[in-house]
Amino acid sequence: MTTATLPASTKPSRPVRWTFPKAASAVGAVILAVIWLIPLLWALDTSLKPEPETTRAPITWLPEAPTADAYRSVIDQGDLIRWFFNSTIVSVLVTTLTLVVSVLAAYGFSRTKFPGRKVLFGLIIAGILVPPQVLIVPLFQEMTGLGLVDTYWGMVLPQVVAPVMVFVLKKFFDGISRDYEDAARVDGASRWRIVWSVMVPMSRPILVAVGIFTFIGAWNNFLWPFIVTTDPSMMTIPVGLANVQGSYGLRYAQIMASAVLGGLPLLIVYALFQRHVVRGVGDAGIKG
């Protein structure tokens, strides 16, 4: 007892105690979080107000009588559901194809040998430097030539070319011991089988991370779908919503209702997969 109390009085005790710096950092963290949430809450708040209340001069905080009118009229106008449908198709296609094509390429570069392999890999790595934005003009010409303007494939295919994903996956595959596939090969598995039943299951966390980020990127991509679609019925949510401000005029409750509906799907996805997202950024970002 006496020996235990002596060091405890000279040094700060080990178990968590709310010292001033600790409390201050928690309070600071919460204040920052509130600041970051306010724009989202303000959008939600506005969307629940009756239209006249949104443009009242001294701003009001909570709606006097919350109403879902704005949501009803936004959904009744119909386009939002169509855009949601388009976004889903495009994002699912982009994510699936990116994963399949990148996994195969990463395996090829990590585990097989063929003439010119190093040169090709170098070329693809150089592709990481190419900002998609510099390609919009020639790419649009190409899509016009291929007849892919205003089609899902026109939106999807250029987004599937993600050299950085090949790079990240190849590095990950390099770290997987060859013992597993040697064992599978002894059992008679082909290389094709090895990819799907050895490499893919062993790299699940990184594939989930790559998948989630590809999906978010595809869902939110603005510039390319904006350029390659002119028909409103083919637009994705980000592109379709760009025209909302003009068509709704100054009806802010409706504009905010469409913003909330447009942002909600990914907020839900993120809330569900937060653990994977946080870890995935670490895996892909720090090591890659």
């Binding site: 963290a29 919460v30 920052l32 979080a33 509130v34 970051w36 949430l37 306010i38 724009p39 989202l40 303000w42 959008a43 506005t46 949104t54 443009t55 009242r56 001069a57 701003i59 978010i216 869902w219 939110n220 603005f222 949510i237 980000p238 592109v239 919503l241 760009a242 909302v244 401000q245 802010y252 504009i255 905010m256 469409s258 913003a259 447009g262 942002g263 990914l266 907020l267 996805v269 993120y270 809330a271 937060q274 997202v277 946080v278």
Partner: peptide, 30 residues
């Protein structure tokens, strides 16, 4: 905290700008 700090990142540019144009609005913006 992680949710609040990262949440805006998952929103499409259009949603973000709709919200902020409204926030910057003269007269009755936030």
């Amino acid at each position: 905290l992680r949710f609040s700090y990262f949440a805006p990142f998952v929103l499409p540019a259009t949603v973000v700008t709709l919200i902020w144009v409204w926030i910057y609005q003269p007269g009755f913006g936030l």
